Computed example of a mutant assay.
Amino acid sequence: MNLNDITGSGPETLLMGIVAAVFLLAGLVKGVVGLGLPTLSMGLLAGVMPPAQAAAILILPSFLTNAWQMWDGAALASLVRRLWPLQLGVVAGTLWAPVSLVTLDVGLASAGLGAALIVYALLGLFAMPLAIPQRGERVSSFAAGLATGAITSATGVFVFPAVPYLQALSLKKDELVQALGLSFTVSTVALFLRLALEGSFAVGRLPSGWILVLPLPAALLGVAAGQMLRGRVGEKGFKRLFFVGLLLIGIYMLARGVMH
């Protein structure tokens, strides 16, 4: 089933419901743990539209929810000073990666990312968490950004290895969520530029009408609800919830890749 099949056969209300539910759920997850919107959206929309098209309608809700998350806190200035090498790497990796959404096998990429996230989440839940030494942090930060950018270009997902890297910096709960918002905002802009360079926003390549508008309010509503839930979770509970969230996203991505 694809987008043309649905819109062409008449039950457009069904498609509206699918898109709204996808972005509401993805926004809720993002509001609670600070991530998951592009990952869940890309995966759940795979059955009704091509990956490049799903990434295109994801750009606006992803950018605005990430910008909201980035500005929602008092640590933005210090995070920018500390994490600018990571952001520089993300932009470079996204724009100049040799593979992209239109060239890489989506199933293989999804399965690989899912397996990596599962391993990392299990380490965080049942073993000592990873830590990044301050010496050489700028170099490791830039390298993590390059890898994240390359994976973003290939899959439309901003999670790996930026999320494990940021978590390894031992940031506090709200700082981590704000740092994720900063990284994801930069990733969204970089992905937009990559898609634009590849012609994904050319006339005739994008769906029209409500499908470009509906994802944004659904995602914002989900994020607002998720943030309310996060405010009731303590520091230790949040870390546990964070790793459980990563584990579930990893399992989902692995299963999606295997069944692709």
Rank of each mutant, 00 (worst) to 15 (best):
V119Y: 11
H260A: 15
Y120D: 00
A21R: 01
L101T: 07
R194V: 08
M1T: 07
G257M: 07
T188C: 12
P85M: 05
D72A: 14
M1N: 01
N66Q: 11
G199H: 08
L146M: 14
M70Y: 09
S170W: 03
L3H: 08
G181W: 07
V213C: 06
A150C: 15
A77C: 05
A255R: 14
D5K: 02
A144I: 03
P61H: 05
A97E: 02
R81C: 05
A75T: 12
S100D: 14
G231T: 03
P207S: 09
F160A: 06
S170Y: 00
G226H: 03
R194P: 06
L214T: 10
A190E: 06
Q87K: 02
T39R: 00
L125Q: 09
L86E: 09
I57A: 06
V90P: 07
F142Q: 08
A97L: 09
V223M: 07
T155G: 01
A224G: 08
L58A: 12
N4K: 13
S62A: 13
S141E: 11
L79I: 00
A116I: 00
F126Q: 10
S62W: 01
A20N: 02
T155F: 01
A56K: 10
L254R: 08
V177D: 03
L166F: 09
L182D: 02
L79F: 01
A46Y: 12
P38I: 08
G93T: 04
A150Q: 04
M16C: 11
L246Q: 08
A111I: 04
V244D: 01
F158I: 03
G34L: 02
L101R: 02
V177E: 04
I18P: 05
S62K: 02
E175S: 13
K239G: 01
M228D: 06
L113R: 04
P61I: 01
R256G: 15
V189I: 15
L247G: 10
T155Y: 03
L45Q: 07
L58D: 10
T94N: 04
L28V: 09
L40V: 14
V22F: 04
G107R: 10
V159A: 15
N66G: 05
E137M: 13
K173S: 09
R138K: 13
A131F: 05
T185H: 00
L104S: 15
E12H: 12
A92P: 03
I18E: 06
G17K: 02
L169M: 14
V213K: 09
Q227F: 06
L180R: 04
F192D: 09
T65L: 06
V223R: 05
S170C: 04
G10W: 09
R138P: 07
M70E: 08
S62Y: 05
W68R: 10
L195H: 05
L197S: 14
